[in-house]
Amino acid sequence: MTGVECLIEDVRWQETGLERLAARAAEATLAHLGLDPAAWEIVVLGCDDARIAALNEDFRDKAAPTNVLSWPSEERGADADGAVPDLPEAGLDPELGDIAIAFETCAKEARAAGKPMQDHVTHLIVHGILHLLGYDHVRDKDATLMERTEVEILGKLGLPDPY
């Protein structure tokens, strides 16, 4: 079992099953990358748009809500565009980092895409965990690698390609 701790600030997340979705996404993501899910810790904050907008402004200078934010415990990104990030080694610090996910934005995006909320949330948690592990989508080849990795993980979970 993966060490995922969910902090629920918005009760609507309880109805969505955020704890179960986050644990499932974390287990699939870590296992896909060859990491033992039981060896790592992740905190997921289930919040609303107002809270994530404040976090987005505080940490990214963007005064608007977003779907998901992540704070890795350390920088793991690859130097070369498109290279696989350096994954953490077991036995050292087990904390990978923190993720925040906003209910209203996620619900609006799921409705607009015509997909179940649980599928969209699972995708966003996978996305956030990949950020914790050094994956990014700023550079083109990094974005291609990250999207391909997300699609592979979601496919193993029986979810369609979100792109």
Rank of each mutant, 00 (worst) to 15 (best):
A100D: 04
S70V: 14
A90T: 10
G128E: 07
N56C: 08
R111G: 12
E41C: 08
H131Y: 02
T105G: 12
P65G: 11
T149E: 01
L69F: 01
R148D: 13
V138E: 08
D142N: 11
R60Y: 13
K115N: 02
C106P: 00
G134L: 02
P116C: 06
A107V: 05
T105M: 08
P116I: 07
A53Y: 03
D142Y: 05
K115S: 10
G97P: 05
C47F: 05
L96F: 11
G134I: 00
P94D: 08
I129R: 04
E89K: 11
G82R: 03
V138H: 03
E74W: 02
I42M: 02
Y135C: 04
E89V: 12
Y135A: 02
V68L: 14
T144D: 04
G155D: 06
L87H: 13
L96P: 15
E75T: 11
M146I: 00
Q118P: 04
A113Y: 06
A83M: 01
P88T: 07
G91F: 08
D136N: 10
D142K: 03
S70P: 00
V151I: 15
G155Q: 05
K156F: 02
H120G: 01
I52A: 08
A78K: 01
K156M: 07
H123G: 09
A83F: 00
A50T: 10
P65I: 14
D61L: 15
C47P: 03
A100M: 04
H123P: 00
D119H: 13
L92N: 11
S70A: 14
H127S: 05
D81S: 02
A50S: 03
G114K: 07
L132A: 05
L124C: 14
A107G: 00
R139I: 00
A113C: 04
D79S: 09
R148E: 09
S73V: 01
V126P: 01
L45I: 14
P72V: 15
V84F: 09
Y135R: 03
I125C: 06
F103K: 01
L130W: 02
D119V: 05
V68P: 07
N67H: 11
E75K: 13
L69W: 00
K62I: 15
L130N: 06
E41K: 14
P85H: 04
L124T: 09
V126K: 07
P85Q: 02
M146R: 13
D49S: 11
D61M: 13
E109A: 12
A143E: 06
V68D: 02
A143G: 03
L96E: 11
V121W: 13
T66M: 14
H127T: 12
P72T: 14
A50D: 08
A113K: 12
D136T: 09
K156L: 12
A80H: 02
E57K: 06
D81E: 01
P85N: 02
K108E: 15
E150R: 11
I153R: 08
E89H: 07
A53R: 10
D98L: 12
A110V: 14
L154P: 15
K108C: 06
S70T: 14
T144R: 10
A102N: 07
A110Y: 03
P85R: 07
D93M: 06
E89A: 14
L124E: 13
K62E: 15
V121A: 08
C106D: 12
E75Y: 12
N56L: 01
D81P: 02
V126C: 12
W71L: 06
G97A: 03
R148W: 00
C106V: 08
D140E: 14
A113D: 07
G91V: 07
I101D: 06
V121T: 01
